[in-house]
Amino acid sequence: MLLDVRDLETHFYGDESVTRALGGISFQVNKGETLGVVGESGCGKSVTALSILRLLPKLTARTVGGEVRFHGRDILALSDREMRQIRGDRIAMIFQEPMTSLNPVYTVGRQIAEAVQIHTKASRSLAMAKAEEMLCLVRIADPQLRVNNYPYEMSGGMRQRAMIAMALACSPELLIADEPTTALDVTIQAQILRLIVDLKERTGTAVMFITHDLGVVAETCQRVIVMYAGRIVEQASVIDLFAHPAHPYTQGLMRSVPDRRRGRQRRLPEIPGIVPSLREPIVGCSFAPRCPFAIDICRDKTPALRDVGSSHAAACWRAEEVMGA
């Protein structure tokens, strides 16, 4: 096991309120696997990534509980200096918007070389050679010319390739990718997804793939966790999740995606209502007000994640009935 997250709890502090963005989540990432983290806006998927890497804004957010064990060692307890040695070297991250996460005033080659130099003490020329090699690895044409490009001289797809090159430059054991293809056109998205899958197979890097797109999950991930309102509601292999969703939210999410197999021009099954506010404490299951399966117990007691099959877990009192529906 590479990463072991236990009861991770993160709060955001506003003027008068506390937002419980993560309400105690636990999951593992194994060596070399791709774990999908899926959910809609505000469900806590990006906060999970930022909490693991300790990149939350210090003034307004704090991880108030839980552990993040990387190779058995709790990285939440490390000093800032020790954390910097892990971040970018053994755990790397790529973000949604490659324009804002690259520095506009340095060449792409220099930025990749900088990451290499910080973590390996390589010489400047060796690091630049490594940068060129990385651009070649992510299949950027003419890497010897492109290392001297500034980010604005590259297209969106190429910038995202450069971001991936930078993230992989130090051969991390875990790559956290937060919506890496959401801002890209669909043909470019297909290229980048293919690239991530290929590189993962070649380098053995584990990937935590955060996305809102079930199609992307189906095509890239082996295991999936589904998040809702700051909690994990379901966890399964990608095959089991799509074949037998055990949480009503997962089921609702899948059915609300247009699908040609269910016919065109038809009304799509809706999930009624809206996501609850995380400012007030939630009593019972957070999905109960929108859930077609909800009964009394759902409104009173919060269901814990429990096994509903081999390596398939759901946080639902009626998971067995949901799976049969």
Binding site: A190, L193, G215, V217, F242
Partner: peptide, 16 residues
């Protein structure tokens, strides 16, 4: 190129 929410589907063709 459009991703399909079906993990059993095999993607044969290389993207454009």
């Amino acid at each position: 190129a459009a991703p399909v929410p079906d993990p059993t589907r095999l993607r044969l063709e290389a993207p454009v």
